[in-house]
Simulated scan of single mutants.
Amino acid sequence: MAIHRANIAMPPSLLSLPSATAKPPVFRVDIPLLPESAVGSALQFIDLLRGANLLASQRQGAQAPRLAWRLLDAEGLPLAPLPGPLAAYTTPDEQATGPAPAHALLIPSFHAPDIPGIRAVAARHQALSRQLGIALDAGQKLLTVGNGAWLAAQSGRLNGRQACLPWFYVAGFERDFPGIGHSLGQDLSEDGPWLSCALPSSVNLLVMALARHALGPELGTACETVMAPDHQRARAALQANAQQHIPATRDSALARAIAWMEAHLDEPYSLARLAEAASVSTRTLLRHFQQELSQSPLDHLHSLRCARARVMLEVTLESVPSIAVACGYADPAAFRRIFVRYTGMAPAEYRKRHALRAPRRRWRVDVK
């Protein structure tokens, strides 16, 4: 996952603005939908906003800041509520309505067969581009997905900025807007008020960047923990929940050794027992680990244990000594030293930054 961030001062987040009332702050995103819009990316964006709100409420309760949205038509008017499953996307939010301007606008990608087709759509919606220019002048943020960047660039306010586009649009965009640069090889570009992602599959990156700005660094980091794919966390979570059976296709000595480690994370380390499980000598096992992973079996075991510890610190309220035992460390002080070595921070500090649950709810992992 590659992200370009320009070193440019950003407008203040909601959390830095003075509040005249006791109500929690609300950051509103307006989403104009054109007849040509790819509506799916807009709905995905809203689903992720809802997920961010849920996470914020779990961590900070009723006073948590929240993200709100409005779906608008091409003229800038709110869409009428729709029945059925779409009601949750179109029902007016009391805190998202009213005369106050939005804090940001999202321009989803739209359907067009080729570059001339994109130019035709942009030409039909110059009024929207003018409104985007007014919004940028007022200090609002602008988020675009894919070829939605054409409508943003057409505002005339983004010369000198960087955009993120699919590779197959770059040449055409360069011809139309030579004053705008390209974040080549990136999935997301953050340049001042403009956040752009190349593909709908990167909409989660837009929401994570928006959450950092609108909800503050703590909740922004929590959103990244949940919304960014993390295969190591997934594996550690499974192992922490229950010991998993290893597929029969994992048949190399190294794979057998790692599988045994995963199934016995909470047991004392023994190189001899590990080599026996892998059906090789200790010397051969050490050579395999060094050749393939550039580390010793013990170093790899520490990394697996720390991955489990990260998950437990994030989703449980178990004490650090209890987590140490669940991860194979009888001495909490030794666990703290190793955790700092592998993560760069102490377990308590990691929990403070990354815990997904508020203290009022308790998730327990039994340690037998």
Rank of each mutant, 00 (worst) to 15 (best):
V340F: 07
R362Q: 09
L67P: 05
Q154S: 13
H288W: 07
P217S: 12
A272K: 13
E349P: 01
G84M: 03
A330D: 14
S189T: 08
Q291I: 09
A330S: 15
F173Q: 10
D114F: 02
E314A: 11
V170F: 00
L205M: 09
Y342H: 12
E174W: 03
L17E: 14
R66Q: 13
V280G: 09
P11G: 07
G133Q: 02
P247D: 04
P247R: 06
L54G: 11
R70K: 10
L79C: 09
W69Q: 04
S303K: 14
L238W: 09
G146E: 05
L86Y: 11
V280C: 05
G160D: 05
R59W: 06
S294R: 15
A22Q: 12
A309Q: 05
R283V: 14
A123T: 04
P65N: 04
L254W: 08
Y89W: 08
E75G: 12
I115H: 10
P178I: 07
L105Q: 09
R5E: 11
D299R: 01
S129T: 05
L298Q: 10
D230Q: 06
E292V: 06
R341W: 02
A259E: 01
S196W: 08
H231W: 11
S16W: 00
G185F: 04
P35G: 11
F289R: 06
A277T: 13
C223Y: 11
I115D: 03
L313V: 03
L210S: 02
Q291C: 09
P25A: 10
G156A: 05
L158E: 04
A64S: 06
V26F: 05
A277I: 08
R337T: 15
R310S: 11
S202P: 00
T284K: 07
P11M: 00
R5D: 02
L15I: 15
G117C: 00
L71F: 03
A259C: 01
L165R: 06
V280P: 05
L55M: 09
S303E: 14
M1V: 07
I134E: 14
R70Q: 12
I180R: 01
L151F: 12
P116I: 12
R362N: 10
Q154Y: 00
W194H: 03
L15N: 10
D93I: 15
G148N: 01
S57Y: 01
C164M: 00
A324D: 07
G181V: 06
T316G: 07
L313H: 02
A88S: 13
A228Y: 00
L17D: 04
L195M: 10
V26S: 07
H182Q: 15
Q95G: 08
G146F: 00
Q95A: 14
